[in-house]
Amino acid sequence: MRADARRNREQILRAAREVFVGEGPDAPLDEIARRAGVGIATLYRRFPQRADLFRGVANEVLTALTDAAREALAAEGDPVEALRRFMHRALDLKIGSVMPSLLGRVSLDEILDGAGGDAVDPIDELLLRAQAAGQIRPDVVFGDITMMIMRLSRPLPGGGQFPDDDALAHRHLDVYVDGLRPSGSPRPTTMLSGPAVDAPAFKRLRERVLDDARADD
Score class of each variant (00 low, 15 high):
126 L>F: 02
51 A>C: 01
114 G>V: 06
58 A>C: 10
69 A>S: 13
134 G>S: 06
164 D>C: 01
135 Q>H: 07
139 D>S: 15
184 G>M: 07
97 S>W: 03
70 R>Q: 14
2 R>A: 13
60 E>Y: 03
90 A>L: 01
187 R>W: 05
94 K>I: 00
67 D>P: 00
63 T>A: 13
123 I>E: 07
54 F>M: 11
103 L>R: 14
93 L>R: 02
163 P>H: 05
108 L>S: 12
187 R>M: 12
212 D>N: 15
111 I>P: 04
101 S>Q: 14
183 S>H: 07
153 S>N: 08
53 L>R: 11
170 H>I: 06
136 I>R: 06
186 P>N: 05
106 V>T: 08
186 P>G: 04
30 D>P: 00
117 G>S: 02
179 G>R: 09
125 E>W: 00
96 G>N: 06
189 T>G: 13
16 A>S: 12
143 G>N: 14
201 A>D: 07
90 A>N: 02
169 A>W: 02
21 V>A: 06
128 L>Y: 00
165 D>T: 10
209 V>Y: 04
110 E>Y: 06
206 R>M: 11
60 E>T: 15
160 G>N: 12
214 R>V: 15
69 A>R: 06
165 D>G: 01
209 V>Q: 10
151 R>F: 15
155 P>S: 12
131 Q>C: 05
71 E>T: 08
31 E>C: 02
129 R>Q: 08
70 R>S: 06
57 V>S: 09
81 E>D: 12
76 E>T: 04
16 A>Q: 09
153 S>M: 11
57 V>T: 07
131 Q>T: 08
176 Y>V: 05
206 R>E: 11
149 I>F: 07
5 A>D: 14
166 D>F: 05
57 V>F: 02
17 R>Y: 03
146 T>V: 15
207 E>Q: 13
15 A>I: 07
96 G>A: 05
145 I>S: 12
145 I>A: 13
9 R>Q: 13
24 G>Y: 09
183 S>L: 12
160 G>D: 15
82 A>K: 02
102 L>R: 09
137 R>N: 07
95 I>T: 10
141 V>C: 03
61 V>F: 07
115 A>I: 03
123 I>N: 04
72 A>T: 02
46 R>I: 14
72 A>Y: 03
209 V>D: 02
113 D>H: 10
140 V>T: 13
96 G>W: 05
95 I>S: 02
204 R>Q: 14
38 V>P: 02
14 R>P: 00
51 A>N: 08
18 E>H: 12
91 L>G: 08
187 R>N: 00
95 I>Q: 04
144 D>I: 11
102 L>Y: 09
151 R>D: 14
1 M>S: 09
46 R>F: 13
177 V>L: 09
98 V>L: 01
109 D>F: 10
157 P>N: 13
14 R>C: 04
111 I>V: 15
74 A>W: 00
22 G>T: 09
55 R>A: 15
80 V>P: 01
210 L>I: 09
36 A>Q: 08
108 L>M: 15
23 E>W: 07
119 A>C: 04
188 P>W: 05
123 I>Q: 09
13 L>H: 08
63 T>L: 07
7 R>F: 04
14 R>A: 15
115 A>L: 08
182 P>R: 07
139 D>A: 12
83 L>A: 08
199 A>C: 00
75 A>T: 02
69 A>K: 04
8 N>H: 14
207 E>W: 01
177 V>T: 03
55 R>M: 03
40 I>M: 10
